[in-house]
Structure formats: C-alpha cells, structure tokens
Amino acid sequence: MTQRHRRPSPQTLSVLTALSAAGQGWLYGLELATATGLKSGSLYPILIRLSERGLVEGQWLEPEKPGRPPRHAYRLTGQGRAALIAAARVEAENFKTALNPEPRGA
C-alpha cells in the first residue's frame, strides 16, 4: 500500500512542536493536551498516527507515587524531528513566496 504524503495539519504540527520542545524527555498525554490546547479526542488519534509512522514513540512509565497506575508517555523520534524540520522549511518557503509573489506576465 502506498503511503500518502501530505502537509501535516496545524494540530499535528503543534503536537510535534510540543514534543520537540521536550527534547529527549517524555511527555504524558495530559502535558501534551495542556501544551497544545487539544482535547483528548483530537490528541490521541494524532499520537496514534504519528506513532504508526515512526515519528513518535510511546512507552508506559511506572508511577512516581505508589498506588498510582502506569502512564503512557510520548517523545519525538529522530524521524519525527526530521519531519518537523521539513514542515517548517515548507512553511517558511510558502511564507517567503507569499511576501514576494512572482510578477504576472513575466
């Protein structure tokens, strides 16, 4: 099956950006929801797609306090970081083009 390559949505870019800001640190879903402003119904499907594409990795982390359940945490992979950089380049090029449009009839 051929994988489609399309520009990431603003919501997906916000998730990638939040994970990038954490460096190699892990972020819980609630932390990502707070950082991005996304509700769980939008956030978790994005995380699943990003994980399936190898852009994000997830892991169950043991609780810091006894008696609490393990929590799922996420971090950006090298491939995810590259995808974010590529998306930023495309956006910068689009912005540059919008500022300096080609003259008509040239």
Score class of each variant (00 low, 15 high):
76 L>E: 02
16 L>V: 09
23 G>L: 13
68 R>G: 03
101 P>F: 13
39 K>W: 13
59 Q>C: 07
41 G>R: 15
46 I>T: 08
26 W>G: 02
79 Q>K: 12
27 L>Y: 07
86 A>T: 02
8 P>R: 11
50 L>D: 03
54 G>S: 08
35 A>T: 10
5 H>I: 14
83 A>G: 02
75 R>Y: 10
11 Q>M: 05
36 T>W: 02
70 P>Q: 09
18 A>P: 03
25 G>M: 05
99 L>G: 00
29 G>D: 10
57 E>I: 15
59 Q>S: 10
19 L>Y: 12
92 A>G: 07
39 K>T: 14
27 L>W: 07
92 A>Q: 11
71 R>L: 07
36 T>L: 05
7 R>W: 13
34 T>W: 09
97 T>R: 07
52 E>Q: 03
81 R>Q: 12
54 G>P: 10
90 V>R: 11
44 Y>W: 14
43 L>T: 00
27 L>M: 12
21 A>F: 14
97 T>S: 02
77 T>Q: 09
34 T>G: 00
68 R>D: 04
18 A>I: 14
105 G>N: 03
59 Q>W: 08
62 E>W: 12
61 L>C: 09
60 W>S: 11
101 P>S: 07
60 W>Y: 15
91 E>G: 03
93 E>G: 04
69 P>T: 06
95 F>A: 05
90 V>P: 05
17 T>L: 08
92 A>N: 10
73 A>T: 07
40 S>N: 14
103 P>N: 10
96 K>M: 12
105 G>Q: 05
71 R>A: 03
87 A>F: 05
33 A>M: 02
94 N>H: 14
30 L>G: 01
9 S>R: 13
12 T>M: 02
25 G>H: 09
101 P>L: 15
103 P>V: 15
21 A>P: 14
66 P>V: 06
49 R>W: 00
103 P>Q: 15
55 L>W: 15
11 Q>S: 08
48 I>L: 03
72 H>N: 03
33 A>N: 05
17 T>I: 06
62 E>S: 06
6 R>M: 15
79 Q>A: 15
18 A>V: 11
60 W>F: 14
49 R>A: 01
57 E>N: 01
30 L>D: 00
23 G>Q: 04
69 P>Y: 09
81 R>P: 01
92 A>E: 07
18 A>K: 07
93 E>K: 08
9 S>C: 11
54 G>E: 09
2 T>Q: 09
94 N>K: 12
6 R>H: 12
71 R>M: 09
8 P>A: 12
58 G>C: 05
18 A>L: 07
47 L>F: 03
58 G>K: 00
5 H>V: 13
64 E>R: 13
49 R>T: 02
15 V>L: 00
75 R>S: 01
17 T>P: 01
101 P>N: 11
55 L>F: 15
9 S>W: 14
86 A>D: 06
100 N>S: 03
89 R>N: 04
41 G>S: 15
28 Y>P: 04
77 T>P: 08
96 K>I: 03
14 S>L: 03
37 G>M: 00
15 V>A: 01
93 E>S: 11
33 A>F: 11
25 G>Q: 09
99 L>W: 08
86 A>C: 06
89 R>F: 11
63 P>T: 04
29 G>M: 09
90 V>T: 07
72 H>W: 13
10 P>D: 12
84 L>R: 01
4 R>S: 13
77 T>F: 13
83 A>H: 01
